[in-house]
């Protein structure tokens, strides 16, 4: 890559999960194409929002980038190194620079570990401090950074509310001073008034530590708030990718248009006047995606070509990428 500002470059990433049949001899009868050839890049210090409905492959994308799943195909360049080629110790060293914040603050913290142990575990794994005292000091500092009382260090996860647990998850991700964090629906499990607290925290931390985020969410209003650029995913593929304002003001892909029109706005006066694009039907199964464009079964503007030829994901100018035959 020539552009030095690019921190992460994903090229034609594919993640298939095999479907097998048979008890003893497992025959490979098909694939769930969770992620089916997506490409994008993230600049340093940027937040890329990745939106889509459940089952579209957005979380799988995040995990495949971090090599929590080994991708079926494609490349993930992180600061120039192809992560898909790295193994063992080399990969583990890279992991120090990339962390993840999970969706469910109830399931992602070990209930038998104290908060202090949870946050210091990555410090031990990566051998960052020599003594226990140094580690403890760092843990207390991290708790302060995420807005928790450092006295909580010896408490267990069940003693905290959902929002506080998510702060612990954030502290654990920050512990090793990463450059890149995959935020996988970090606020979906939280109440509205608590969501705002976590969003504000993530924004503050980004400014303070110059973090780069891949922000995965299904809520388009949240993604619009936090992202610099936004990618829309549908059934394992990217439908559209553009600068945040460009995408929300000038959505080109019929799926993006329908998705935006479906989001309710908390204002009855606006809601009264809004025209909704109601999509028919459901998302097809990723085990058996339609031929041609994967949105062709639900697209209100479908043409004959859409059912045969898969549209290329291309730049229409001004870094506005769309996969659609209309353009």
């Amino acid at each position: 890559m020539s552009d030095n500002n690019i921190l992460l470059d994903v090229q034609d990433l594919k993640m298939y999960f095999p479907i097998t049949q048979g008890l003893i001899i497992q025959r490979h009868v098909g694939d769930i194409k969770a992620v089916d050839g997506i490409s994008f890049s993230i600049k340093k210090g940027e937040t890329l929002g990745l939106v889509g409905e459940s089952g579209c492959g957005k979380s799988t994308t995040g995990r495949a980038i971090l090599q929590l799943y080994r991708p079926t195909g494609g490349h993930v360049f992180f600061k120039g190194d192809d992560l898909t080629k790295l193994k063992g110790e080399a990969l583990r060293r890279k992991r120090r620079q990339m962390q993840m914040i999970f969706q469910d603050p109830y399931a992602s913290l070990n209930p038998r570990m104290t908060v202090g142990n949870i946050i210091s575990e990555p410090l031990e794994v990566h051998n960052i401090y020599r003594t226990k005292a140094e580690r403890q000091e760092r843990v207390q500092e991290l708790l302060r950074v995420v807005g928790l009382n450092p006295y909580f260090v010896n408490r267990y996860p069940h003693e905290f509310s959902g929002g506080q647990r998510q702060r612990i998850g954030v502290a654990r991700a920050l512990a090793v001073n990463p450059e890149f964090i995959v935020c996988d629906e970090p606020i979906s499990a939280l109440d509205v008034s608590i969501q705002a607290q976590i969003i504000n925290l993530l924004e503050d931390l980004q400014a303070e530590f110059n973090l780069t985020y891949l922000f995965i969410a299904h809520d388009l209003s949240v993604v619009r708030h936090i992202s610099d650029r936004v990618a829309v995913m549908y059934l394992g593929k990217l439908a559209e990718l553009a600068d945040r304002d460009e995408l929300y003001n000038n959505p080109l892909h019929p799926y993006t248009q329908a998705l935006l029109s479906a989001v309710p706005i908390p204002d009855p006066v606006i809601e009264e006047k809004r025209q909704r694009i109601i999509l028919e039907g459901d998302v097809p199964s990723p085990a058996n995606p339609p031929t041609g464009c994967n949105f062709s079964t639900r697209c209100p503007r479908v043409m004959d070509i859409c059912k045969e030829v898969d549209p290329e994901f291309r730049d229409l100018g001004g870094d506005h990428w769309v996969a659609c035959h209309l353009y």
Binding site: V192, A196, S221, I265
Partner: peptide, 9 residues
């Protein structure tokens, strides 16, 4: 509550 909502508009 209304202030804590990120809004599309």
């Amino acid at each position: 509550l209304l202030g804590s909502l990120p809004r599309l508009d």
